[in-house]
Design a protein around this nucleic acid. Structure first.
Lengths: 336, 336
DNA sequence: CTGAAAGCGCTAACAA
DNA sequence: TTGTTAGCGCTTTCAG
C-alpha cells in the first residue's frame, strides 16, 4: 500500500516531476490541459502530498509544542481547543506535553520539544522561575515561545496571554462583601506561581480597604489540586478558624475545599460561601455550582496561536502581552 | 540562529558528512579518536539531529494520531498519559484530535491525520458504525488503527483494547441489589456506542434474573454529557417514576443526574444511590463521591501504544483484542 | 510551456 | 577507517 508520489504521477503521465509539481502548486506556467490531466490523475490515483518532504525543504516541522501542568482538568484542554481552531487548518500539528506540575519534567519536556524540532512552543508554566534559563535558551535559539495563564515575570521578553488576575480577584472579593460575607478565607496557590500572588494581592487589597483583612484567613497551599483544597479546608476546621466564605485560587482548590466541608456537614452556601477563579466546566458540575471568575479559555488559545504564528513569520517583531477580559459568574455557591 | 547540521560539523572538522554520521549513529567503522572529536564538536556547537530528514529518509513521520470524542473530561487525557509513557521515549509525537462526539468531525479528523502522514492512529469512537468505511480505508492503506474503549463491531479486523463492559455492569447491579436497592434505573448512553448497549445488557440480565426488570427504568440518552444526565433525571422526576438508585453509563451522566436530584432536594445516597462506569477522577471530586467501575485508563493507553508499535513494526501480524480488568470501587454514593 | 537538475539533512551502499 | 554518491519527495531556478 505504498504512498503514491509525484514521481509515480510523472511516470504514469509521461511528464516530468516539475510539471506535475507545477500543476499541484497552481503555477501559472503550465498549459491548462496538462494541468487538468495531472489533477485528474492525481485524484484518481489518490495522490497525497508528503508533508515531510515539504518540511525538510522549507526547514520547518509544522509542529507546535504545547506544554501544560496537567490535562486532567478541562483548563488546558479548553485552551487547546482554541489553539487547534487556528493551527489545524493551517496544517500545523500540536504536540502536547504534561509537566505534572513538576518543574523538572517541564524542563525535560521543553528540551524534548527542541529535539522534536518544533516551530514554536505555547506554554503554561508550572513554576515561575525554576526554568528561566531554559525559556531564555529556547528564545535565544530562535524558537518562538508564547506564555499563557501562568506567565513568567517581566524580565523574560516573550509574548504573553493572561487575564487581569489582581483586578478580577478584587471584584470577586467585593462581591462576597456585598453579599454580606465578612470572614473571607483565601486559599492561595503556591507563591511560585505569579497568578497565585496576583490573586492574593487583589484579595488582600480589598479586605484591607474594608478594614477586615486577617492573616489567619490566608491559607497558602503547596499545589492546586483537589487534594490541596481538601487539606486547606481541613486546616481551617482543625484550627477552629471562623470563616463565612472562601475565595480559592482555582476551581480545583475550591472544589476540594467544598467537598471536605460538605462531608463535615457544613452547608454551602448558607454557612460558607465559595468562589473560585478559572473558567472551566468543573464549576458547573458540582453541587452547588460554583461562583467563579471565568477566563475566556478558548479565545486565550486562539490568541496564543495567533501570537505564535506572528512570531514564526517574523521573529523580530516586538512581543505583545495580551490581557484578556474575564467575567464574574455568580452561581449557587455564593447565594443565600 | 540557524540550526547546525551534519554538514557544518563536516566543514568545521574537515571531514566528510558520512564520517560525522557514523560517529553520531555509533557505527563501528570509525576510529575512536575521530569519533570522540566529532562528538565533542557536536556537543560544543549544539548539534541536534533534524528529525524531519530522517522521517523523509525512512518514510515514517513518527507521528501517531490520537482521536477522541472529547478531552474535557479526564477520561481520554488519562489514557493519553499511558500512550505518552510508551511513545514519547521512542521519539514519537502524538497528534490529538477531538471529535466533539460528532461523527462528521471524527471523519474529518481521520482524513486530516492521513494527510499528516501519521504512522498510526489510536482512536476512541464517537459513534460505532457511522465511519466504518473510513476506518476500513485507513486500514487498507496500511496505516495501523487501534481502537480503545468504544470499539467498533467485530466486522472490523483491528487491534482493540477494552474492558468487559457487560460483566462489570452486571457486577455493579448485583452490588446495588445486595445493598437493598430494588428500583434500579439505568441511564444508558446512545445505542450507537457499543459499550452503552453492552452495559445495558449487563443491567438488564441481572434485573431479569432477579425478576425486577422494568422497562420504564431504562432511560436512553442522546449523548453522554453532564447535561444529558441532568435531562435523564429530570425525565424520571417529571414522569413520576419511582426509583431508589441509578446506574449510569458514564461518570458524566451520573454526575449530571446526581446534581439535578440534589438540586431538587433529593438525598444521595439515602433516597437514591448512584453508581457509574468510567475510572476518571470525576468520581471523586463530587459530593458524595461516586461508586463506580474503574477502568485502568493509564494501562489501557500503554497497551494501545504497545499494540500500535507492533503493527508499525509488522503490519501483517494478526490483530489482538485485549480485554482489561476493571475494578468496582464502592464510595459514598451507594452507601447508607 | 516543459524538462533537467540542484538541494533541504541525513544515511547507507559502494569505493578507496 | 574514511570519502563519494545516490536518494527519500518536493519545489524551484535555469535552460530549452
Amino acid at each position: 500500500m505504498k504512498r503514491i508520489t509525484i514521481k509515480d504521477l510523472a511516470k504514469h503521465l509521461l511528464l516530468s516531476t516539475s510539471t506535475i509539481s507545477r500543476a499541484l502548486v497552481n503555477d501559472k506556467n503550465i498549459h491548462p490541459d496538462t494541468k487538468k490531466k495531472i489533477l485528474d490523475a492525481a485524484e484518481k490515483l489518490g495522490y497525497k502530498p508528503n508533508p515531510t518532504a515539504l518540511n525538510l525543504k522549507y526547514g520547518q516541522s509544522k509542529n507546535i509544542g504545547f506544554v501544560v501542568p496537567e490535562m486532567i482538568t478541562p483548563f488546558s484542554s479548553t485552551v487547546l481547543r482554541g489553539i487547534q481552531n487556528i493551527l489545524y487548518p493551517l496544517g500545523y500539528r500540536i504536540i502536547i506535553m504534561q509537566s505534572d506540575e513538576n518543574p523538572l519534567i517541564e524542563r525535560k519536556n521543553l528540551l524534548l520539544l527542541e529535539e522534536f524540532n518544533v516551530d514554536g512552543i505555547i506554554i503554561n508554566l508550572c513554576h515561575e522561575t525554576y526554568n528561566h534559563d531554559v525559556y531564555q535558551q529556547i528564545i535565544d535559539r530562535g524558537i518562538p515561545l508564547v506564555f499563557f495563564d501562568r506567565i513568567p515575570d517581566k524580565s523574560l521578553d516573550a509574548p504573553k496571554v493572561m487575564v487581569n488576575d489582581n483586578i478580577k480577584a478584587s471584584l470577586m472579593i467585593e462581591h462576597l462583601i456585598d453579599t454580606g460575607r465578612k470572614k473571607i478565607v483565601h486559599i492561595m496557590g503556591p507563591s511560585t506561581i505569579r497568578n497565585a500572588t496576583e490573586r492574593a494581592m487583589g484579595y488582600k487589597r480589598i479586605l484591607t480597604k474594608h478594614g477586615i483583612f486577617d492573616p489567619d484567613l490566608l491559607i497558602k497551599t503547596e499545589g492546586a489540586s483537589f487534594e490541596h483544597g481538601r487539606i486547606a479546608a481541613q486546616q481551617l476546621l482543625s484550627k477552629n478558624i471562623e470563616f463565612d466564605s472562601i475565595f480559592a485560587f482555582t476551581d480545583t482548590l475550591a472544589i476540594g475545599a467544598m467537598n471536605y466541608l460538605l462531608e463535615q456537614g457544613i452547608q454551602i452556601p448558607e454557612e460558607v460561601a465559595i468562589a473560585s477563579f478559572s473558567g472551566t466546566e468543573l464549576a458547573t458540575i458540582v453541587h452547588p455550582q460554583l461562583t467563579s471568575v471565568e477566563q475566556p479559555l478558548v479565545q486565550m488559545g486562539e490568541v496564543a496561536a495567533g501570537l505564535i504564528l506572528e512570531k514564526i513569520k517574523d521573529n523580530t517583531i516586538s512581543n505583545k502581552t495580551i490581557v484578556m477580559d474575564a467575567a464574574l459568574i455568580y452561581r449557587a455557591s455564593t447565594r443565600g
